[in-house]
């Protein structure tokens, strides 16, 4: 797995960018709702004030980081991040179709692949064990409404 090198800017710079963009986003989309007055605040009042404040904080962080650069972000483990995220998204997409056992085994194997110590035999054993255990605990004991076998498997 390759790690992704992030451009030379500092941690503060990128924090500032995120804050600035989010703050402006809240102010911008807040324009769709009534502002009201200080005495009788509309739905846009509080988010607009806070969004402005967040954007300001972001701006200060950016300017400060450009004047006096701090430690850089370094590399991002995009591969590992992608696998862990994908395993959850797959689980959500397939839970009703494959059922708990299938979706869960996929979740375990895909996420386990992110580890440097991944071995197929270990991951598959773990997947089977967790699938059986979770079916017993969550579906049988706690009777959560989750299908053990999904629609694709005739469940």
């Amino acid at each position: 797995m390759k790690d992704f090198k992030v451009m030379g800017q500092s941690k503060d710079f990128w924090s500032g960018v995120i804050f600035l963009a989010t703050g402006l986003g809240f102010v911008g989309f807040g324009r769709d709702y009534p502002m009201g007055t200080a005495m009788s605040m509309g739905p846009a009042y509080f988010p607009t004030v806070l969004g402005g404040l967040l954007a300001l904080i972001g701006l200060i962080l950016i300017v400060r980081a450009l004047l006096r650069p701090g430690p850089a972000v370094g590399s991002l483990a995009l591969g590992k991040l992608g696998l862990v995220t994908a395993s959850n998204v797959l689980f959500a997409l397939l839970l009703r179709r494959l059922g708990l056992v299938g979706a869960l085994m996929l979740l375990v194997v895909v996420s386990a692949y992110a580890s440097a110590r991944f071995r197929w035999s270990v991951a598959l054993t773990l997947a089977v064990g967790l699938a059986v255990g979770s079916s017993i605990i969550f579906v049988w004991l706690l009777s959560l409404p989750i299908p053990i076998l999904g629609t694709w498997l005739g469940g």
């Binding site: 862990v84 395993s87 959850n88 689980f91 959500a92 997409l93 839970l95 009703r96 708990l100 869960l104 979740l107 375990v108 996420s111 386990a112 580890s115 440097a116 110590r117 991944f118 270990v122 991951a123 773990l126 997947a127 967790l130 979770s134 969550f138 959560l144 409404p145 989750i146």
Partner: peptide, 23 residues
């Protein structure tokens, strides 16, 4: 840890799903 974290993920995924049965 490589055995532990997939189990954590399983508990998180099932736990969050069961909050309101929503993907």
């Amino acid at each position: 840890y490589h055995l532990l974290y997939p189990a954590i993920l399983v508990f998180c995924a099932i736990g969050v799903f069961s909050l309101s049965n929503s993907e």
